[in-house]
Design a binder for these strands. Sequence first.
RNA 1: GCGGGCGUGAUGGAAUGGUAGACAUAUCGGACUUAAAAUCCGAAGGCCUUGCGCCGUGUGGGUUCGAGUCCCACCGCCCGCACCA
Length: 861
Amino acid sequence: MSRYDPSAIEPKWQDTWEAQQTFRAERAEDRPKYYVLEMFPYPSGRIHIGHVRNYTMGDVIARYKRSTGHNVLHPMGFDAFGMPAENAAMASGGHPKDWTYSNIDTMVGQMKPLGFGLDWSRMFATCDPEYYGQQQALFLDMLEAGLVYRKNAVVNWDPVDMTVLANEQVIDGKGWRSGAEVERRELTQWFFKISDFSEELLEALDTLDDWPAKVKLMQANWIGKSRGLQFAFSTIDAPEGFDRIEVYTTRPDTLMGASFLGISPDHPLARQLEKDNPDVAAFCAEARKGGTTAEALETAEKLGFDTGLKVRHPFDTAWELPVYIANFILMDYGTGAIFGCPAHDQRDLEFARKYELPVISTFVPAMGEDAFILPEEGGPAYVPPKPETVRYINFFAGEEAQTGDEAIEAAVEFCEKNGVGHGVTKFRLRDWGLSRQRYWGCPIPVVHCDACGVVPEKKENLPIELPYDEDGAAIDFNIPGNPLDRHPSWRNVPCPSCGQPARRETDTMDTFVDSSWYFARFTAPCAETPTNMADAEYWMNVDQYIGGIEHAILHLLYSRFFARAMHLTGHLPEKCKEPFNALFTQGMVTHAIYRTKGEGGRAVYHYPEDVELRDGKGFLADGTEVEIIPSAKMSKSKNNVVDPVQIIQQYGADTARWFVLSDSPPERDVEWTASGAEAAFKHLGRVWRIAAEAAEADAPANEHDEALLREMHKAIHDVTLGIESFGFNASIARLYAFTNVLGKSGAGGEAKRQAARVLAQLMSPMTPHLSEEIWAMLDGEGLVADAAWPVADEAMLVEDTVTMPVQVNGKRRDEITVPKDMAKDEVEKLALKAQGVQRALNGGAPKKVIVVPGRIVNVVA
RNA sequence: GCGGGCGUGAUGGAAUGGUAGACAUAUCGGACUUAAAAUCCGAAGGCCUUGCGCCGUGUGGGUUCGAGUCCCACCGCCCGCACCA
């Protein structure tokens, strides 16, 4: 008998699937469809073991659904625009396009040996002109529908690289690449009107039953709905045009505790004042510095500048409040101006103490008010928990009220009734700035004309292709800034409206745009329009989407917005407004780090193959013990990256697939270990041997057959349940157990063959090649990939007799074996007679006996 | 600061409120072998007085005939958001 040899088996079956077009998806109106999608990869150059885990999970679902009669769409593509391609061009010459497509070739070449049941005919990369041209068409439709607009915005500007940076690219106030101090600069940028959908995107989260609660919560927090009062303070002797200053507050009930008005350094009034007053200008410049990162904001000291201006309190015109410019007030939330109530806001209290402003309480705890220390005396601000009953002393004087939403609403109503402002709902979600001053992205299809202004490109001129200049003649990536801006000819075009010489927009789109609708494009990747309604109608929505938690907010929120925008512009049916029916966020594949201390205490990282593991400790060849840091994120610099290509060469794809699914639940991280991979390989070899033995077994049917077949049906039941509930690790554990039973069974040849065929089927979503091989070995009909999923026979799941533990006062004392449908009182009699129970009762009479049929008996003594 | 999640053997982890530790790794023992590899069989939560024993799912309480699971408090770890008015 030969050995399990994946290198012989795997290519053979991959060729068969390819030849038979097994995973080609064709519309078939008479069959139920199932669309399973994994978040498509960025073509960084090589596939990562994390990709293997992600796509294997999708493949398990896809193959399982196929075998349960679904018409499955399971596509793959590449999220191919973005900065790494330009950085590679800068670092080592070459062209981003060549770099990207060559990486894609490599990665496809690495993915195919993994045997994923993908419809490769639908593959595209977002940098294909056929794709981004359709994206430009979509953009033009969205522009026409008022879903895209231009405005000035404050952005992170890297003065060395001369480009806008995303917040994530600003580290400690410095550009991540250039290291230059980042400035806040105002630029005219393109924006998607995602904020128009704030309410809808928030509300619809409730309908996403098959999304992780965590992701929905993160999105809800990101959208950040709040209810409050917007009103104006009237000013005294302020510059012209600033008679009133609008503020927004979520705590209108603290209005009578106001002691100052604060405005953002970017507030129009601050900008006005800074024109004539160098002190103001200096303060504002200082306050604006330091980028907008979380870290920068956290460490920043709260600073204020007294403008000398005064405003009148809306409820008491004799009451005047000073106006401060403060560095902690954001221009793009609310109105960019606040009133400070130090008694009931810790931040305002600190500000008030620093600038010696009054602290006025508006309410005290209803109970135990004597214990309440007013903040003047050094205590913290009184911010009552919600809900808590408080007594107002300075507004709705004497009234008791519950804090919380109702109190806010009551205060809003009171203010409205008295002509002070109106209730408003605000969202934290801001419009999505999509302009990037980069080359390797989708060109924004508009033209700037001196006569006509900003003119959309004509659709017949699409795609607006990037100038590739592959000899590098015109495009130089080594000069900072956007190469498109410097290109000698590309930007010079006639105005689509008047025909006069005009300039093309040189900003390209944020790469998140590319990934916001690719799932829809997969339903008709060659359509002449962004989508084809018949295909979208049939294939959408994505039934199961699988990807990393790191996309919980941006990608998934943008996609939800795009699906709505595509519906409004006629590119998707109404039912696609929520494009992902179910979402699963999988964990990472981690690997231990092996570390020693080198010269000067510097950490030295060792490759796993250089470390010998003995008794849970690691040693180098020279005997030095290494420190083991378990379960760490893979990182090149830590030398703990596992290369899937190497694993496939060593063990085959099925082993890699089997291992990444075993051991840990899919949502959790799984640690790659050499011993685990080795064990997975050994197990598959064992399955192969057991199946080969079964194929040749000639023992006649016998008394062991039934036990084996019962186990088989139980395995069908449990494994199916595991797959359907994303409990792949549990399914695999069950398959191990069933294999052990089959391996030891004394059943006849026919029963063994039947069990082995079912084993092959149950394993086929995880280890498709091995399963095909076994299926063929056992004369299975056609391909296991085309075979109908086995169904557990309910009757075989229940044993005729059951062994029930018997407890006395919750402690197990004995067990009894009874027919499965024995009457409760019979069971009770037997249980009480059991030796262990008698002993525990020690002659005493039981007070009560609880019989849970088929499960357990508990005697209460 | 706000929000969420998780604590089970040496390790990854199983357990619709019903025999805690399935399955696997590492470990130990045995068979086969000149030997090794491969393969197969077996042991294994802790403790002691080795019993028909006691203890055991972060800690302390509670609900229940029965709690890893439900409730309350605390401790620890992880994640997300964060001058959001």
